[in-house]
Every structure is written in C-alpha cells, then in structure tokens.
C-alpha cells in the first residue's frame, strides 16, 4: 500500500469509463475501488469489497439505483446502505450494513476521489481525455517523467507501491498521439529498470 496523501483529490476514472449496468474497477494507493453510475445519474465510489463476505463489488452488476453483489446478490443503494438480502427476504436490513463509500467529484471529464479531499478539484486545461495507461513504476518516478511531455496535461493515480496510472488531457484533442506518447513513455520507464 502506498502512502496516499490525505486532503488530495485523485482522478480515478474518466466519465466514459462508466456505462450503464457496469461496475468499473480500479485501485488507489492500494485501496481497491468499485466505481459505478446509478440509474439516477449519481456516480458512486466504493470500497471494492462487499461487507457481507468480502467479494469484490466489481464482479457484480448495477441494477437500477442499486449495486448487486455477485456472491449472494445483496443489494446496496447509492448511500452505501444495504437494501435487500435475498437469503432472508422478510428481514428488515439493519442500517449498520453498509458499503464503505468514498467522496466523489466530477470535473474535466474525470471522476475524482481521495481521503478527506479538501478544496476544489484541480483545474485542468480544456481538451480531450486520453486513454489511461498503467505503468509499472512508482508514482513519483512517473510524475517526474511526465513533466517534459508537450501538449498533454497529465494526472497521476498511484495504484499501488510500484504501479501508476497516467491519465492525460490531450490539449490539442489529438488522442491517438497522446496514446502513442504515453505508451512510449511506459515502454521507456518499464525497460529502464
């Protein structure tokens, strides 16, 4: 687990990553996350772990405004509260059964979260969100290498201690070029080990 700075917003997904019925999966500083959009439109960032028996929520499905776990089909609503337990359908679900939720912000085509993030989400220049590229190097090293890239406004998501996701805004809108640049950077950093 990396040290995740508190008070900081991290971009963990692009808006286009969230499609109907689907649970997007990622990890932030060693914290596995399940990200999904309820039918009502609100974006949810949760611990990727069902409180019942620990199965990754990202194995499950979005049904209307609920996320349904794949193991025993418990349903959880957008506040994280468990709403239905099919093994005991008559039982009133105790309010204590909840998914662990994370703060969410949407800005610049990206979904942001963090540990007690403070203040506004970082401002990014206008442009198009390029494809996120995972690089098997620590975040600090990746961030240092990104400074030199022209036409790209990158944001870095530490996955775990040795892996980093790079998301970039292609300020000129040339997403294929941004992709080639980031993939080449990945090759360079990973082969320099």
């Amino acid at each position: 687990m990396t040290n995740l700075a508190t008070g900081v917003w991290y971009a963990i997904a692009a808006d286009h990553d969230l499609v109907d019925g689907h649970v997007y999966r990622t990890v932030l500083g060693g914290h596995e996350l399940a990200v999904w959009r309820a039918q009502s439109g609100t974006v949810q960032v949760w611990d990727d772990r069902c409180p019942h028996r620990g199965v990754r929520f990202s194995l499950g499905e979005v049904v209307g405004d609920d996320l349904r776990c794949q193991y025993h089909a418990w349903r959880f609503g957008p506040t994280g509260a468990c709403t239905f337990i099919p093994a005991q359908p008559q039982m009133k679900v105790p309010g204590t059964i909840r998914a662990r939720t994370w703060p969410v912000a949407q800005s610049g085509g990206l979904v942001w979260t963090g540990i007690d993030p403070a203040g506004p989400v970082p401002d990014l220049p206008p442009g198009t969100v390029a494809r996120a590229i995972p690089i098997a190097r620590p975040a600090a090293e990746v961030a240092a290498a990104l400074v030199a890239l022209e036409g790209l406004a990158p944001v870095v998501q530490p996955l775990d201690a040795g892996t980093t996701m790079v998301r970039a805004i292609a300020t000129d809108g040339d997403v294929p070029r941004a992709d080639r640049v980031l993939v080449a950077l990945r090759r360079r950093l990973e082969s320099a080990v």
Binding site: E32, D48, P51, R53, G54, I85, A87
Partner: peptide, 19 residues
C-alpha cells in the same frame, strides 16, 4: 475475488446473518 485473501477470523471482520 474475496478480500482479504486469508480468511479473517475476528468477529466483525465480515457481516454474517442468520443464514
């Protein structure tokens, strides 16, 4: 896809119901 990989034995590690 169960986390953590090792089975947690502490009461309260998970949320068991009567079933």
């Amino acid at each position: 896809n169960q986390r953590p990989a090792r089975l947690p034995l502490a009461d309260g590690a998970d949320t068991p119901i009567a079933a």
